[in-house]
Design a protein around this nucleic acid. Structure first.
Lengths: 338, 338
DNA sequence: CTGAAAGCGCTTACAG
DNA sequence: CTGAAAGCGCTTACAG
């Protein structure tokens, strides 16, 4: 394939030293005599020698790659996480392998196997699905354990135990948002969520329901709708919700795309927030904020999540004995008009 | 490091065959006798053996990775490209190494060196900067050539020749947009661009200026402003532009973030498009579209770019002798109210 | 159809 | 401070 990769052997020969010495110049220059070292370095530069990562990794029994697995790489939420992780790995000290799983279990597992083949040094992982059956969970944990590498679970707490993780406090966010609406006199509050096979959907619903009950309001089934966190589905659900006879006066939307779907449905009816109905969305939508669209939202900071995720991973890479650590990031409620 | 990776040797021993046979079962199962094959396969499964990518790559003198280098991974434009590339690589057939360079030459070069170490099988590359000096260009081309791997340049045509590439027809897009404004009677048309050390800024300016001149309008210096394609800078430039005594009646904004910066400045003045001033932006802004904000824009389809980029790469991986191919994707003008 | 052996390009004890 | 040698975990002609 490659015509003429220059190898460590070539450099050694040309410099009149052994491969071991060239290797030392590369990895541990100060143990090599200055004169030898500079001679070798000059030849490395001249021949434009670039060591082979495969050979190095194989020989060191240690890879230089980190796996990054997310379900939706083109969602600004995950983009921002990716960006923060990229920045945290300064100078390409590690190599980032990026996998998109489309919320698909099969792709998720394939990605993990691929990363296992690469013997990744660490894994930043947002599970594509919840792995709810016992069999699925056992299988997943087995794969993760067998990777024998630090793992940090991001955003979706699927309760497989024994792994570091970083999450937002979605429960509290939803609880506070719902409470705030109630305090403003709303009693008919809807939630556009996702189906409850997703842990985040369950958590968010719990926060919502608990807040209602704590205020003596019994949650109503028809105000509790479940999509898939994508815009199209949220849009369709919103249309139905808005067409109810006894419709809600406030709607909580459970992620950025859901909020957009809701707004789209609203617009088609020539209605507006907060004039015709009140909304609190989960996640800021930067573009709308810039436009002066003062939406109410529960803020989660994905860049912070990316940064902290990498910190957790580093910590674990340094010391595998430390106790499991789960970081819960607070959300913040931004209210303009409810 | 790793406690007990099971290797091909372990499988071979347990199956009572040679490593070569296990290797064949893995790579070329049908040349192995059915009985042997199934026995080996069973043990592979039982021991959960996962071959080492480093060892495989080293031995095959061929990597299974593809490099992806972009300047701004958290810009929806590049996110969409990444997503499309991910999808095009079906089933993780290749492993995607992802690098963000922040429009920084140093990071760009470091990324390339890192990818060279990994002996990537192909490279999808949007240069961080233009590499304008002869010295820089020679250096860059040297690095790219020495990677000895198919390269597809994306989006930024920096004229280093000899590489496949995929670009949008930004010139035509700008030309058409400017012409459309002129046809509506606008003569004072501004452009918020980036500094001309960027090829895309030059291309876009050319389209704009040529359209003006073709209509007998002499471009005015003060209507031609240059930022960095980020929102903050665009916002500041927009404020100045809008405050001019003899200000333009139409403004072309040269990427998504620039458009947002312009809108922000406009909003602060309590002005609106198209009532107070007309705008045509480059790139759709999905969130605004959903909100029914009928902005005028020059559409570029980043998903298409990602998909085609990967097609070009595949083509080149299959046959290194084919002539250089540059694909220019058309843009499409969407006008609602100018 | 299968195995023994060489080789991929490195690193790292070990010995000097 | 340096080199010879073994080894990392695979693949692949070669021979049978």
């Amino acid at each position: 394939m490659r015509v003429a990769d220059v190898t460590i052997q070539d450099i050694a020969r040309e410099a009149g030293v052994s491969k071991a010495t060239v290797s030392r110049v590369l990895n541990n220059p100060y143990i090599v005599e200055i004169e030898t070292r500079t001679r070798v370095e000059k030849i490395i530069k001249k021949r434009n020698y670039t060591p082979s990562a495969s050979a190095r990794n194989l020989s060191k029994r240690m890879s230089d790659t980190i796996g990054f697995v997310v379900p939706e790489i083109d969602n600004p939420f995950f983009c921002d996480i990716l960006r923060a992780v990229s920045s945290a790995i300064d100078d390409f000290h590690f190599t980032l392998i990026c996998c998109n799983t489309d919320d698909d279990m099969e792709k998720d597992l394939k990605a993990l196997v691929m990363l296992k083949e690469h013997r990744v040094r660490g894994l930043l992982y947002t599970p594509a699905v919840d792995y709810r059956t016992e069999e699925e969970r056992v299988h997943l944990v087995k794969i993760l354990k067998e990777m024998e590498t630090p793992v940090v679970i991001m955003d979706r707490h699927i309760n497989i135990g024994d792994f570091d993780g970083i999450y937002f406090n979605d429960y509290q966010g939803m609880y506070n948002a719902t409470k705030a609406l109630i305090q403003q006199g709303h009693t008919k509050i809807a939630i556009i969520n996702a189906t409850l096979d997703r842990v985040l959907a369950r958590t968010r619903r719990d926060g919502y329901i608990d807040a209602l009950r704590d205020s003596g309001i019994e949650p109503e089934e028809r105000y509790n709708v479940e999509g898939d966190y994508r815009m199209l589905k949220a849009y369709e659900l919103s249309k139905k919700l808005l067409a109810l006879k006894d419709r809600p006066t406030a709607v909580i939307t459970c992620n950025n795309n859901t909020t957009l779907g809701f707004f789209k449905a609203l617009r088609e009816r020539n209605e507006q927030v907060p004039r015709d109905i009140v909304n609190i969305g989960l996640d800021m939508i930067k573009e709308l904020d810039v436009m002066g669209y003062r939406m109410n939202f529960i803020e989660r900071d994905p860049k912070l999540m990316g940064q902290k995720a990498y910190e957790l991973l580093s910590r674990r890479m340094k010391d595998n004995k430390k106790p499991i650590k789960e970081v819960i990031l607070d959300t913040k409620l931004h209210l303009y008009d409810i």
